[in-house]
Design a protein around this nucleic acid. Structure first.
Length: 513
RNA sequence: GUCCCUGUCGUCUAGAGGCCCAGGACGUGGCCCUUUCAAGGCUAAAACACGGGUUCGAAUCCCGUCAGGGACACCA
């Protein structure tokens, strides 16, 4: 890939936006804006790293904002886990929900009046409009568009109606949202820091919802309002945002605000090149911590995704990265998140940069933490005769992989495929089982079996084998709870993979379901 | 399907027209070291997606094709 950024403009310096950031003179300020809707994600760490380095290198500010505008999915628990993970990796932020700052609050759910006020301003200026279309109508429009092989999108029905009428409907109880009035003609253009000029025909841009019917803003609105109010100068985010950038540009124009510079980083990928996902990769930062990866190694590894040092160095600290980071050395092909190289790096950190004493401290802190050992002892004390039996009996609490015999994971009267699907559905349940207490795990599992109409007894036996590698263990739900959601999900996924690798129908064993 | 982004070994990548019959690292194979296993050393196989231009000269610039990805929500 040859970088031609900006060179299409005659007389302009190569990659002008990088040498002279769009909002000149202002001190650099960037942000990471995670959405607290699940486990802390490795993508968040990756994007943070680039933002952090970019800002710190220029003596700028790095800010953390919580984008919790999805009321149904956002949780405080997830927010806390995200902050803890980012701190574990060594990041610090100058402003954020926990540390405060001049633009507080930093949680979007606490800024509702601000968005409301701004959206009214847009409506008054004719840049946005209220829409009272029902979900049913939207669905019908969509269906028809699909049938006619048109692009799905809002048909701008309410934009052509009398605003007072629409308003009256909403006041009378119809659900109402506010949409952006996208110009029907012309183009919206922006200069990507990494990719040069990107243009979109306005006709392709949907009249995006800005304010939802529950009064919460959508990402698009909140993001622009906050970035402006918080003085963000550079937005470095994932490539997935490129197609919504024109909407953001239009919003800045509608408000009459100066735009930050945008740069879209290549997305981390699974081995099959799709966007990295928990289905195909461990992506939770909690997993990496629990599995015993050093934060230094993970940071180092993420830093070699899409970036290389000029001197070719492969081992570097966060500080080194900050000092040597250059936007123009980012390569744009989406890097595959390949754990093999991470393992090698982690091993090097352990070997070369970790003293015996540090090792011991690390083990005590991770694997042999008092609290963890206590929970295990409580489970095994009745089942062990002398303390040396402990190791043999409780080994799976300390292991990485447990390698259960795949053939024994089959269920009576089920095809291999059916079993795989069943276990995959179970992992989904585990993924969203945030309260991993024994009683809650039990409820989740029993409910699951009931729902699927499968024998709880058989499934529990299989799960026991999957998560411990053994047939004889302490009570299953307590065991799962102590192991923790991360280990449980990882082990079940590993077992599923082993199951898939099994020859189709092992010798007359399973009948069709 | 439409729009947008991207395309160098299996993977991460170096490469800014001659330094490149393409370099490094992970992984894989072999050999050495070694009581074993690692680590380490040496070594091998392994890539410029394809086709047209431009140029004395193209991995590098232009166009097209193909391929991959992303987006098309009252999720971010």
């Amino acid at each position: 890939m040859r970088r031609q950024r900006g060179s299409r403009i005659p007389g302009a310096p190569l990659r002008p936006a990088m040498t002279a950031p769009a909002p000149a003179s202002k001190p650099v300020k960037v942000r990471i804006a995670p959405s607290p809707t699940g486990d802390p994600h490795v993508g968040t760490a990756y994007i943070s790293l680039f933002n952090y380095a970019f800002a710190k290198q220029r003596g700028g500010k790095f800010l953390l904002r919580i984008e919790d505008t999805d009321r149904a999915r956002s949780t405080r628990q997830s927010e806390e886990a995200i902050l803890a993970s980012l701190r574990w990796l060594g990041f610090t932020w100058d402003e954020g929900p926990d540390v405060g700052g001049p633009s507080a609050p930093y949680r979007q759910s606490e800024r509702l009046p601000i968005y409301r006020e701004h959206v009214e301003q847009l409506v008054a200026a004719g840049k946005a409009y209220w829409c009272s279309c029902t979900e049913e109508r939207l669905a019908a429009v969509r269906k028809e568009q699909m049938a006619r092989k048109q692009n799905p999108g809002y048909d701008r029905h309410c934009r052509t109606r009398n605003p007072a009428e629409v308003r009256a409907e909403i006041e009378a109880g119809a659900t109402g949202v506010v949409r952006l009035a996208v110009p029907r003609e012309g183009e919206t253009v922006f200069n990507d820091l990494l990719r040069g000029e990107i243009r979109f025909a306005n006709a392709e841009i949907d009249d995006q919802v800005l304010l939802k019917s529950d009064g919460y803003p959508t990402y698009h609105l909140a993001n622009i309002v906050d970035d402006h109010l918080m003085g963000i100068t550079h937005v470095l985010r994932g490539e997935e945002w490129i197609t919504s950038t024109p909407k953001h540009v239009l919003l800045y124009q509608a408000f009459g605000w100066e735009m930050p510079a945008f740069g879209h980083l290549p997305l981390l990928r699974n081995a099959d090149k799709s966007k990295v996902s928990k289905r195909k990769n461990p992506v939770s930062l909690s997993y990496f911590r629990e599995a015993g990866y050093l934060p230094e190694a993970l940071i180092n590894f993420l830093g070699m995704m899409a970036f290389t040092f000029e001197d070719g160095r492969e081992m570097f600290s966060l500080k080194d990265f900050v000092e040597n980071f250059k936007l123009e050395r980012i390569s744009l092909g989406g890097p595959v998140f390949d754990l093999a190289k991470l393992r090698w790096l982690n091993a090097r950190y352990l070997r070369e940069r970790t003293s015996d004493a540090e090792w011991v401290a690390y083990l005590k802190d991770r694997l042999f933490q008092d609290e963890y050992l206590t929970r295990i002892v409580q489970l095994v004390r009745e089942r062990v005769e002398k303390s040396e039996d402990f190791v043999a009996y409780a080994d799976f609490f300390f292991k990485g992989d447990v390698t259960p015999p795949a053939a024994e994971l089959m269920l009576k009267d089920c095809s291999k495929k059916a079993v795989v699907v069943l276990y995959e559905e179970l992992v989904e349940k585990v993924d969203t089982c945030f309260d991993f207490s024994a009683s809650n795990v039990e409820a989740m599992m029993r409910h699951f079996c009931e729902q699927k109409g499968v024998s709880a007894k058989d499934v529990f036996a299989a799960v026991r084998l999957m998560v411990t590698g053994k047939k004889a263990t302490p009570p299953l739900f307590e065991t799962m709870s102590v192991l923790g959601r991360e280990r449980v999900r990882t082990r079940i996924r590993a077992a599923i993979a082993a199951l898939k690798a099994l020859p189709e129908q092992p010798a007359g064993e399973a009948k069709k379901p």
